[in-house]
Design a protein around this nucleic acid. Sequence first.
DNA 1: CGAAATCTTTACCCTTTCTTTACAGTTTTC
DNA 2: GAAAACTGTAAAGAAAGGGTAAAGATTTCG
Lengths: 226, 226
Amino acid sequence: MKTIAIIEDDQSIGDLLEEVLEREGYLVKRAYSGTEALYLLSRQRPDLVLLDLMLPGLSGEQVLEKLSGVPAIVVSAKAGVDDKVRLLLEGAADYLTKPFEIQELLARIQVQLRKAPSPAAPLFQAGDLTLNTLSREVTVGKEPVHLTKTEYAILKLLLQNPTQAVAKSVILDRIAQDTPDCTESSLKQHVSNLRKKLRDAGGRETIQAVWGIGFKLVLDGEETSL
Amino acid sequence: MKTIAIIEDDQSIGDLLEEVLEREGYLVKRAYSGTEALYLLSRQRPDLVLLDLMLPGLSGEQVLEKLSGVPAIVVSAKAGVDDKVRLLLEGAADYLTKPFEIQELLARIQVQLRKAPSPAAPLFQAGDLTLNTLSREVTVGKEPVHLTKTEYAILKLLLQNPTQAVAKSVILDRIAQDTPDCTESSLKQHVSNLRKKLRDAGGRETIQAVWGIGFKLVLDGEETSL
DNA sequence: CGAAATCTTTACCCTTTCTTTACAGTTTTC
DNA sequence: GAAAACTGTAAAGAAAGGGTAAAGATTTCG
């Protein structure tokens, strides 16, 4: 999901934008002044910024300087060519004059986002479970779950083979580099801890035992009658 | 020198564009129909295409499909939102309605060209942290921080992969040219020193340990642990 | 050379993680 | 139906990892 920061002091315009963007599936952050914008940007890096020029606090131009890589679409009532040219040369990715058609804005947002270097999101998902192999973060819904190295390795292996039964010997094999001394009896302990953490984070029971074999991930409320 | 292809059937408009662009220092190629455009593009790959929509032969849309990566600014007399949206979503990088100010076109051309070869940002930022690879300066907010060679290398590596867990072995690998004898135990010492310097300069705690793996940079005030 | 800065090593404490042991509940097998 | 084999969870001790300080080793630089 892409994050878009709306930097706009006019409440009603901002509300409208937020509503439209969220309906399109974007995650929206807002700031109402230049200084607030800088604070917002310092805390997190959105994929795109919608920037109003006439801001209290810092001017839009000053905010623009601080973006360092995040594309910005300037949305302004200033229709003059000089303003457009200046902002575009100063780093704006695009410039739209108010009033504008919301459809055009959405299209131009897509243009900006599609050229972002989307580095093949290394994400594994199943149900409300998400595992990011880059940040090594695991979430249940929106809830982050802290896993140990071994638990992470187990869950990742299961997520790579959803709905398939994974033999205990295979699991031990694959996590051997992380946890060389793990035996079958400690494995069941890890699985138990893992299940508890997922449960505590609000997840359904997703790791199921396969009798005599190992474990598997169940996606839906499916039952595997023996 | 950048090459721009002008695909425009109107001779006088094309001449005007060519003259202006050449005065700006671009190398200009021309095509007067859709089919000619495809031939031109098959022979050489310009850095940017200026594309008129109403072409004899193939339509602008059809040309657009064949561009495969070359950014295109559509220049058209069609001012309707539907046309704009359609073209932008089909791959156009920008859309200008005739008549337009030549200055704005030049600015938008620069916008397209400047982002072409991902210009190896000399600046890395995260939160209130800034690292300038040209001057080798690191600041927390406005406060300059003096780092040793090793500390600088570590921080730069983390800033290049924000929010990603970076394995200790990877860090050791990447800083090996600067600090060949660094081991895991000395690495944690460097990280400790680095954290202390950033802390003393007023920074938040941004370098987080990933248990058993290495370290990562946290942008938000997000918590991964516990 | 000598001083300062930098890097590595050692040591210690604390936290996290892993394995083991124990025991209760289930399923299978005979 | 009972023994055997397997699973699930808890608790505790063992092992490993991380954080920091201090001291020794090395390099840098005037």
